[in-house]
Design a protein around this nucleic acid. Structure first.
Lengths: 326, 326
DNA sequence: CTCTCTTATACTCATCTTGAGCATTTCTGA
DNA sequence: TCAGAAATGCTCAAGATGAGTATAAGAGAG
């Protein structure tokens, strides 16, 4: 076994625990950020901190940091991904390797003012092309030009074909469908091409020399926008097969409020009657018996989440055509 | 911001990259293991090695280790999860914290003999209760007794109710449906109760004092069985919405071979005609034009995977009831 | 007090998609 | 030549979905 003695080639490692704390308010998806942090310049950052000896588990460490930095304690938490590219998240000075473990946390607290020095920010501020609720977002036009320039910059042939397919799939061009879940694919592609500010900071080879002000959307510190993209992608995917939306809702709500929350996260509009049918058929909610007025129209029935829901069915998900015994 | 000076409370960290390399042969799901490794006793381990300075990315580090330990180079690779519980994967001596990042790799090579000192092992050897292809596995009977004992060991009331629900859901008892994807839930529950050997090693509080030979199935080194459970769960889930099976198939195959591969991974039997309909409707395969004889019956058409498949549709997945403009 | 706007709810309907089988076809081996 | 084992083709009844149409019932404007 070619296993060298430990420590021979190893490197000092700092493990950074980073949280994407999501909430919904005013029909907008919100994420908790630290507006700026000493040293990193005027960039917004996600709450994070290094793993320490006293943290028994990674998740415990994350919860401790978030509590220290925001005063809020987290409910639903889920690990997302561990990033560790040497050239995308080096420590200033580059002495130690930085590993960042990203987490997604869901909270109902976005309606209240953000605690401490934090702010709730609309996540589409960082990813304006992801919001299709009002139809195709305008930014996409500008991005598309940059993307096509990158495709044609390749010599015709295999490389160009590959680039073209990648762009087509990620951004739903030339007849391909837009997929709300490819948030990370899109961000990574833009990074690679050099269309986001983070790429310029890290000096990506071939980064387009575009005026900073024209670079796509609001950047974040370190690789935090990448982690946020991962979180959005995961949440958009999960919302379709697990009842996670309810983690973001008040204890009681109406069908429309629930629908708006889902639309907000998925970035698309849904068909009202069918959404209602879907939710009630799945048995995910039950009526409280009360009626909510002031909806701007006919009063709505008040609903609450049915805890027992998950217990009953094996949780939707795409099923395989199983058979009993054959 | 309560961010202490770096290094104050930090701990030396070793990052271990661990690979679950999966293949299918003889209608069995195989995983590549190192039969035993010096120091860790007679336990089987997954290929793994520490992250080093020379590894530009985590995935590159993993590939390098696997190549060094097995001589094989990996194709499809996907990060699974990062484990870092202090009490489940301490270094011998406990001086440094061990973080293990698990990866899932898929290969067509399982048909060939395992390279180097490695062995291909049927994964149901470690999780016999996960194989429902021949109907409900017999081990479940024995496990069920242990599970129910744990439930009734709690004082009646909230705690007992919670335990009961957890067992019911994870193992599909008392009317709940068995879900092929809850592999990790099941393993974690067994660990917690003390029904797997790993729990005894780590001295889980309240681990049932059961004769070692009766503990559920074959254990592995460190937390490798936990990582394997994560891999199986992920693969079983992914197979339903991404065409990953093809990474495990030979370049050409028949419908039945494809079906057997899926059954092997999912651990269930499928309805032949419906499986065929599903696969062909999705446009995932195309006929090569050849015919395969020696199938034991009527000859079958030879198929190959259609690369273009993914490009066309937005990849199945459960859809939300979207609407155009409203 | 009535009319208009807006949202909430009820239903309908034509398609698709699924789960289960039955019926044929075509090799291999006894 | 026949039985057995697959491979393929089709059918059918339920359900799930996508798109609407039709009412019902507050809030405000006038």
């Amino acid at each position: 076994m070619k296993r060298p003695p430990p420590s021979a080639l190893e490197q000092a490692v700092v493990v950074d625990l980073t949280a994407v704390i999501v909430g919904v308010s005013d029909d907008q998806p919100k994420v908790l950020v630290l507006p700026r942090r000493g040293g990193t310049g005027p960039l917004e950052a996600l709450p994070s901190g290094p793993l320490q000896l006293r943290h028994r588990t990674l998740e415990a460490g994350l919860r401790a940091w978030v509590e220290a930095q925001t005063g809020a304690s987290l409910g639903y938490v889920e690990q997302l991904y561990t990033f560790g590219d040497q050239d995308r998240a080096a420590e200033p000075g580059g002495a130690r390797r930085v590993l960042s473990i990203g987490y997604l946390a869901l909270t109902r607290a976005a309606a209240s003012p953000a605690p401490g020095e934090t702010e709730w920010r609309d996540w589409y501020r960082y990813f304006p092309w992801e919001d299709w609720r009002q139809g195709r977002p305008a930014v996409l036009g500008r991005l598309e030009r940059g993307l096509r320039r990158w495709v044609t910059a390749a010599r015709a042939g295999a490389e160009r074909g590959a680039r073209s397919e990648r762009v087509r799939l990620a951004f739903g061009l030339d007849g391909a469908a837009w997929s709300d879940e490819r948030v990370l694919d899109r961000y990574e592609l833009l990074y690679e091409i050099g269309l986001v500010a983070e790429a310029m900071r890290q000096g990506v080879a071939g980064a387009l020399a575009v005026d900073r002000t024209k670079l796509a959307a609001q950047p974040m510190a370190a690789d935090h926008r990448r982690i946020l993209a991962t979180a959005i992608a995961r949440l958009r995917s999960k919302i379709k097969y697990r009842p996670v939306v309810f983690e973001l809702m008040a204890p009681t709500f109406t069908f429309l409020q629930l629908q708006r929350a889902v639309e907000t996260l998925a970035g698309v509009r849904l068909h009202k009657q069918n959404f209602r049918r879907l939710v009630s058929q799945r048995g995910l909610v039950e009526e409280t018996g009360s009626i909510v007025t002031g909806t701007g129209g006919r009063p709505a029935r008040e609903l609450r989440y049915r805890q027992e829901a998950i217990l009953e069915r094996p949780a939707p998900g795409v099923r395989l055509p199983a058979v009993r015994g054959e």
